[in-house]
């Protein structure tokens, strides 16, 4: 007999949450500390030198604005995908989830264009600490996007088979994937003004 782990689909009556939801929030808490440390590093570096460039002088603000809109939109579609499941509508879920994936790929393409133009001008992390922290933070954020794409693609494709067997558990999974995705969006919301607009 397989071991039955309680509270994977229904919330624990005492805490009011499922295992996965508590787990994803704990994970996000640690992510807050990760990006917090990087932002702290950015402030330290900026306070330490006199010739820190303004983001709007050296980075491509219109492209980054486009990316902001793209990411915010993907955040809406992922929460709409969850709401669709809540309304028992798998087809609508698939539409919204595909839109989310499309948006995340667009985000990465725009990012690649941005990186590419920097590299073609011979700019790398070694150029200055402004570019170094820019590449590290946006790069790490990009890795988070890629991670999200993998998870969301799995949940849209093979993972969605769970819907017919354990619908509640599947909805929970989408909620957790959504929480992660919103967090990635949230990081960008801070990253965009701090790196590009100041």
């Amino acid at each position: 007999m397989a071991v039955h782990i309680p509270y994977i689909d229904k919330p624990n009556p005492v805490t009011g949450v499922t295992n996965a939801k508590l787990g994803i929030w704990l994970f996000l808490a640690s992510e807050v500390m990760l990006f917090g440390a990087l932002f702290s590093a950015l402030i330290t570096l900026r306070l330490g030198v006199n010739d820190w460039p303004h983001g709007y002088e050296v980075l491509n603000v219109p492209l980054a604005t486009l990316n902001t809109v793209v990411l915010i939109f993907s955040s809406v579609t992922v929460v709409m995908a969850w709401a669709a499941l809540k309304m028992n509508n798998l087809k609508q879920f698939k539409t919204y989830m595909s839109l989310t994936l499309l948006m995340s790929v667009i985000f990465l393409i725009v990012k690649a264009i941005e990186y590419g133009s920097k590299f073609s001008h011979g700019i790398s992390p070694a150029t200055s600490n402004f570019y170094a922290i820019y590449f590290v933070i946006t790069g790490l954020h990009g890795l988070h996007i890629i991670g999200g794409i993998i998870v969301n693609a799995y949940l849209l494709g093979p993972g969605s088979k769970m819907w017919s067997v354990e619908p509640e558990r599947f909805t929970g999974r989408i909620e957790c994937a959504g929480l992660y995705w919103h967090f990635v969006d949230l990081v960008w919301i801070f990253l965009f003004p701090i790196l590009y607009l100041l």
């Binding site: 704990l26 808490a29 640690s30 992510e31 500390m33 990760l34 990006f35 917090g36 440390a37 990087l38 702290s40 590093a41 570096l45 790398s124 992390p125 070694a126 600490n129 170094a132 922290i133 590449f135 590290v136 790490l140």
Partner: peptide, 25 residues
């Protein structure tokens, strides 16, 4: 572990960048 380790992970990434990509964090 959950809340204290990530800053070190960030620091390790920065030091890695210093060593591999030639940045000067």
């Amino acid at each position: 572990l959950l809340l204290a380790f990530p800053p070190l992970e960030a620091a390790a990434v920065l030091q890695l960048a210093d060593r591999v990509f030639g940045s000067s964090f």
